[in-house]
């Protein structure tokens, strides 16, 4: 298995294959994501509707997938905090009886694997996908799982990713595996 492309997002920087391709001074993830979206001319309005975890996963994946055909690329992602960041936001909207307005648009992101769905929709992928919640980034685990997918012939490539986000703490490490 070969690791062909690597994208890292942390500390308001997007790094693709050891090259900084976007950098911002902002400390807030939502501002950083919006600035990156504009600067990198992603032109995908649905991005603005995503929760922060999906924005993080989408940005990192987009740097690698971009305009290439990925209809035979599988997705294997993981993180530690699941969708807790969005779960709390949703909880806040239903905490009070007097101000009880659950948001459907927030509710749909109260699962971590939704971010994998967003990437699949963008690139019209109908391949295998999985999202694991782990205590820490375990590359061996992700690679072993990916190797099984590749060996089965169900995909030609696997996009693997650690996409961790909770409040203002975030890190994405996404890479492409091929046989």
């Amino acid at each position: 298995m070969k690791k062909t492309d690597i994208c890292t997002i942390e500390n308001s920087k997007i790094i693709l294959n050891n090259e900084i391709i976007f950098e911002s001074q902002t400390e807030h993830f939502s501002d950083f994501a919006k600035e990156a979206y504009k600067s990198l001319e992603l032109n995908y309005p649905k991005f603005h509707k995503m929760d922060n975890l999906s924005k993080l996963a989408f940005l990192a994946s987009e740097m690698i997938l971009k305009n290439n055909d990925h209809s035979k690329t599988a997705l294997v992602f993981a993180n530690k905090s699941s969708s807790l960041d969005t779960d709390f936001k949703y909880q806040e909207s239903i905490n009070s009886q007097e101000n009880y307005f659950p948001s459907p648009a927030v509710f749909v992101y109260t699962l971590p694997n939704i971010c994998v769905g967003e990437i699949s929709i963008k690139h019209k992928m109908q391949t295998e996908n999985a999202f694991f919640v782990l205590d820490e980034f375990d590359e061996d685990f992700l690679n072993t799982y990916s190797a099984q997918i590749l060996q089965s012939g169900k995909a030609e490539k696997v996009l693997c990713g650690w996409v961790e986000l909770y409040q203002e703490s975030y890190k994405a490490f996404v890479y492409l595996l091929t046989t």
């Binding site: 307005f101 659950p102 948001s103 459907p104 648009a105 749909v108």
Partner: peptide
Amino acid sequence: IDALELIVLLD
């Protein structure tokens, strides 16, 4: 989902 969000907005 936007349609549901508009229903919440009306309320």
